[in-house]
C-alpha cells in the first residue's frame, strides 16, 4: 500500500487555519445573552439628586446609550472625551450608570472631566450591573425606544464602535 501524505497534510493545514482564526478573536469578549431582550427593571437614585428615584419606564421611549462607568475605572477616563463629543452632537440620549462607586468621587470626577450624561443613575451595590451582566467597566448598551437591548460593547468606546456598531443601529433601514 502506497502512503498517501495528502490527507494528513490537509488535516494539518485545516487545523492551523482553525487555530489561526481562533487567535484573532478576543477571549475577553463574551457574547451577551441580553441582546434582543428587554432592559431589566430597576429603581435607582440620581447621582445629582439622590432623593429622586428613576425607574426603567422613566427612561425608555427613544434610542439611548447606557454607559456603565466608575471613577475608579481607568479605561472610563480613556473613553470619556469621546462620549463628551458624542453628547455635543445631540444625536442620542446618553445615560450614565455609576457602578459601585462613591457618589462624592463620582461627582468630583464628572466635575473635572465634564458631564456628558442626560442623567446619571447610582448603582452603588452593583445590582443593576449584575442584571446587565456587567463584568468589566466601562460597558455601553444601546437601548431601542421599546426598551430592548440592541447592542453591548465591553471596554472603552472608540470612534469606529460608536459609528459602526451603535449609531447605525439607530438609523431606519434604507
Amino acid at each position: 500500500m502506497k502512503a498517501q501524505p495528502i490527507i494528513p497534510i490537509a488535516i494539518f493545514i485545516l487545523l492551523v487555519a482553525l487555530f489561526g482564526i481562533g487567535l484573532t478573536k478576543d477571549p475577553r469578549l463574551i457574547p451577551s445573552p441580553l441582546i434582543g431582550e428587554p432592559l431589566p427593571e430597576f429603581e435607582l437614585s440620581l447621582l445629582h439628586h439622590p432623593d429622586d428615584i428613576v425607574e426603567k419606564h422613566d427612561l425608555i421611549g427613544e434610542y439611548m446609550l447606557l454607559n456603565v462607568w466608575a471613577s475608579w475605572c481607568v479605561a472610563c477616563a480613556e473613553e470619556h472625551s469621546l462620549i463628551i463629543d458624542l453628547a455635543k452632537q445631540k444625536i442620542i440620549k446618553i445615560v450614565g450608570i455609576n457602578y459601585k462607586d462613591k457618589s462624592s468621587d463620582a461627582l468630583r470626577w464628572l466635575e473635572e472631566k465634564g458631564d456628558p450624561y442626560d442623567s446619571t443613575l447610582v448603582d452603588f451595590d452593583g445590582e443593576l450591573g449584575m442584571d446587565l451582566g456587567v463584568y468589566g467597566v466601562p460597558e455601553t448598551f444601546l437601548i431601542d425606544p421599546k426598551g430592548q437591548v440592541l447592542y453591548k460593547h465591553v471596554g472603552p468606546l472608540t470612534l469606529e464602535v460608536i459609528e459602526n456598531n451603535l449609531l447605525t443601529l439607530t438609523r431606519p433601514e434604507q
Partner: peptide, 8 residues
C-alpha cells in the same frame, strides 16, 4: 447567572 452572563 446564565441569563445575565451567558453560558460562558
Amino acid at each position: 447567572l446564565t441569563d445575565r452572563y451567558g453560558k460562558f
